[in-house]
Simulated assay, not measured.
Amino acid sequence: MAARAAHEDRTYKVTEAVDLGEGLILPEGTYPGRLQWTEFSQVNGPPRIVSQRFVLPLSAAEVKGYGGKLGRTQKLREVDISKLVANGLIVEV
């Protein structure tokens, strides 16, 4: 069966500053993001979900303000925060 990409909007809360790597420090606060995954239709039953990940999109201004860098033409950086959510450093609200 064909795969289908899907996502749901989520809100994430950071209770203390978190290092996202490459000099990018996310300050405490609430941020809009999404949960995205790939699903495969099943003949008998609900879709099978794979490749689930939590994503935090940051604008160029946010990335620069938080100490990160972007390429000259980049206007957005999407950060995979799945490990931080799993470890409880970032929570869903």
Rank of each mutant, 00 (worst) to 15 (best):
S41Y: 06
Q36G: 07
R4M: 12
T73K: 13
G21D: 05
T30F: 06
V14H: 02
D80P: 05
G29L: 05
R10N: 03
A5D: 13
L35P: 03
D80F: 14
G29V: 00
K69V: 07
Y12Q: 01
R77P: 00
V55L: 05
E28H: 08
G65F: 06
V93A: 06
G21Q: 07
I81D: 01
T73H: 11
G68W: 01
W37T: 05
W37V: 03
R4H: 15
P47S: 14
G45F: 13
G33L: 00
A17V: 10
G71R: 12
G21S: 11
G71E: 05
T11M: 10
I81T: 05
N44C: 13
D80I: 11
S41D: 07
G23I: 12
P27C: 01
S82T: 15
V91F: 03
L20F: 08
R34Y: 14
L58D: 06
R77Y: 06
T38H: 01
T30H: 02
Q74S: 12
V55H: 03
M1N: 02
L70W: 02
A3T: 14
V85E: 00
I90T: 00
K64C: 03
L89H: 09
N87Y: 13
H7T: 09
G68R: 05
R4K: 14
V93G: 03
E8K: 15
T30Y: 06
V18N: 04
L20C: 07
K13P: 01
R77T: 07
V63E: 00
R10G: 02
Y31L: 08
S51I: 12
V93L: 06
K13H: 09
G23T: 10
E28N: 05
G68P: 00
L24Q: 05
V91S: 04
P57G: 08
